[in-house]
């Protein structure tokens, strides 16, 4: 909630021109949420958009996104290959400005990769890749996910105070869009899982009925037979069930009609 207020305050305090730019950015993100087929695709478009917003003549910014997946940082999307390889490099070291920003929840700025002493190995590699300055802005998400926006400039001191403020603004707005995209993806996955479960359960229940009739046994006993067969032969329960059905009826495909 406090993020919200901050963004509005800085919007109100900002110049009109910046305000219009931000409005376009918000509209663009809404389109992305609606159009993107999956979260990775969405993040790639978002990284490209953020990089475009922050780049100026002679200072082309690269943008990468790192998220925590299975307790490990993964570079999931980027505006270009340069950001991608720098993100991956940092994740392989296990430490660096972006990961620090991710863990602490506060932005980290490396004004000059040549003189900064904080992450010597990584910053030397970044310098060799002709990166002068790095800005990492964490996203505050409501989802149980963590993400950080990694910004790379070819110039040392490539981000002015105004640039840093703008990057934080963009990250704040992007976080809401990402929350939405994640929610949609989550619901879509849950829907797909349920559809699969419904289909699978129909097959299994039918097979259970068949076993009950053949063996004159209870439902539980029929299930035990199915489970034992599956684990002894190392075949999936559902496949055993459908083999039983087709052995009786010769029917290959049983499906549940499910209106989506």
């Amino acid at each position: 909630m406090s993020d919200n207020v901050e963004i509005r305050e800085s919007l109100a305090g900002g110049v009109d021109e910046a305000g219009t730019g931000l409005q376009d950015f918000v509209l663009l993100l809404q389109d992305l949420v609606l159009e993107s087929s999956d979260v990775r695709n969405f993040l790639t478009e978002m990284a490209t958009t953020i990089a475009g917003q922050l780049s100026q003549d002679g200072n082309r910014i690269s943008c990468g996104m790192t998220v925590i997946r299975h307790k490990r940082p993964v570079a999931v999307a980027s505006s270009d290959p340069r950001a991608q390889s720098l993100d991956e490099l940092q994740n392989s070291f296990g430490d660096g400005p972006c990961l620090t920003a991710l863990r602490s929840g506060t932005p980290v700025y490396v004004p000059d990769t040549n003189s900064d002493k904080r992450w010597p190995k990584y910053l030397r590699a970044a310098g060799a890749a002709r990166i002068g300055s790095i800005l990492a802005v964490p996203m505050h998400l409501q989802n149980q996910a963590q993400a950080v926006v990694n910004l790379y400039s070819p110039a040392a001191h490539g981000f002015s105070q105004q640039g840093i403020d703008e990057a934080e603004n963009l990250a704040g707005i992007s976080a809401k869009a990402l929350d939405l995209a994640l929610n949609i993806a989550h619901l879509r996955d849950a829907r797909d899982d349920l559809t699969a479960a419904l289909k699978s359960r129909t097959v299994i229940d039918t097979a259970i009925g068949a076993i009950m009739a053949q063996n004159r046994c209870s439902r539980d006993a029929a299930f035990q037979i199915l489970v034992k067969t599956s684990s002894h032969r190392n075949i999936k329960l559902r496949e055993v069930a459908s083999a039983i059905i087709s052995s009786i009826a010769g029917e290959e495909d049983i499906s549940t009609t499910y209106e989506e």
Binding site: D193, L194, A196, R201, I204, D205
Partner: peptide
């Protein structure tokens, strides 16, 4: 296995 609870429940429900 990093298995998510809802995913597991759905699968388990799907096998009866």
């Amino acid at each position: 296995g990093n298995i998510n609870l809802t995913g597991l429940w759905t699968y388990y429900c799907g096998i009866g």
